[in-house]
Design a protein around this nucleic acid. Sequence first.
DNA 1: CGTCCCCTTGAGCAGAATCAAGCCTAGTGG
DNA 2: CCACTAGGCTTGATTCTGCTCAAGGGGACG
Lengths: 233, 233
Amino acid sequence: LRQLPGFDRFTSAELDFMRTFKAAHRHAPAQSTLFHEGDAVQGLYTLFTGWACRYRVFHDGRRQILCLLLPGSLIGIEGVLDQRPHYAVAAITDITYCALDQRLLPRLFREQPALALRLLEAAMEERRLLDHRICSLGQGSAEERVAALFIDIYERLFRLRLVRDGSFTLPITQQQLADLLGLNPVHTNRVLRRLRERSIVTMQDRSVHIHNMAELYRIAAVPDGASQCMPLL
Amino acid sequence: LRQLPGFDRFTSAELDFMRTFKAAHRHAPAQSTLFHEGDAVQGLYTLFTGWACRYRVFHDGRRQILCLLLPGSLIGIEGVLDQRPHYAVAAITDITYCALDQRLLPRLFREQPALALRLLEAAMEERRLLDHRICSLGQGSAEERVAALFIDIYERLFRLRLVRDGSFTLPITQQQLADLLGLNPVHTNRVLRRLRERSIVTMQDRSVHIHNMAELYRIAAVPDGASQCMPLL
DNA sequence: CGTCCCCTTGAGCAGAATCAAGCCTAGTGG
DNA sequence: CCACTAGGCTTGATTCTGCTCAAGGGGACG
């Protein structure tokens, strides 16, 4: 992970600092829950390998997956801020992660301001993802949502060097996909079929192949950064 | 603003530090844009009075309002992180805001770790709001979304002491309400009518009156913190 | 071999979008 | 002072996207 651009900007002093706080290197099996909504979180985690997600469950069983967590994702900051998380975190695949000592954060802010700033940057990056998801859920049709999600995942995996020839593993069920997209699993399936029939994307055996990236972007209708200067009506 | 709980936890040294970086106290008229998507943001703002919002516009004119900004909200952190925002910010009402010097942040992290930590807390609080919105947009029916949004705004205004007897001003049009909810304005109107006819909420002349809070909470179906311990299927 | 989970497909329904028209208020200008 | 306009709100009629219910197929695993 350290090899990757974006993860390589640590000074050796910063790395030493982190190591003193590294409490444990753990792993968790697929489908296990790291913590529930309202639990006291007992540490700050960094995901090393595997997939996880943040999610919320409603009284009646509906579930919304808020965010996919990929290698490098920080998990459970609220624990260190003495808050209770309003969401749960579960491993999707088997995962390995690093657990940092809870008392890290105050010292980190005092002694390693550059690292602290990095933390804020990470939070802003996550906000960007959440904003995109809100646009997708609020304005997108089913097809647009699926396209936007695939692009979102593609781009994150690309930066992690986990894409080969427009293909990547996506170890989630269609049920989970539907919970990400705010769609019914049956309808999700139909949308996937249509995208397959039009030779744009196929999703099989936990892996996604993008055959027509340009068309996928067109469907997703993502507002690109340089876009609109429209007034607020 | 300083009087309010949550805003009163500053030491005088911290206040002095902030003041040295306070570049200007400005105001902007209703409907004006503070910055567009992709603009270089020239400072860090704190909203003092009035309402604003973060939003994105699609190629085809669809618009999603990401977040309402209320007094106390921090605006434009990415400017200080040398990033371009992926969203625009517009004033809804006339607003006044404080502009802080751009070079504040690195020094703040070096010299005022407690303040820096506060910044991270604020970011986490905003993430909580975004997570709720995602749940609302992804899983909620039109009625649930409206109820959840009213509760969300109610709770934020309550903390700002801007609620009286279950009533508060909400200076937005139904069009803008629809853009927040990811709904069609026509349908939004119909939902409002139904809630009015059932004596739950009325929205008139830019102000909202909640007549039956319990029922509103029931409709919103917000997953409460203490809730579910369900597995991820 | 049977069970369980996941994927797939069909039929029918419902919630929300779209299209279209009328109303009310505030602001503008003759 | 009044006609005119524009924006926002309200309502009806119709369409369609996505949901629900239901059933069958295939692979993995005990």
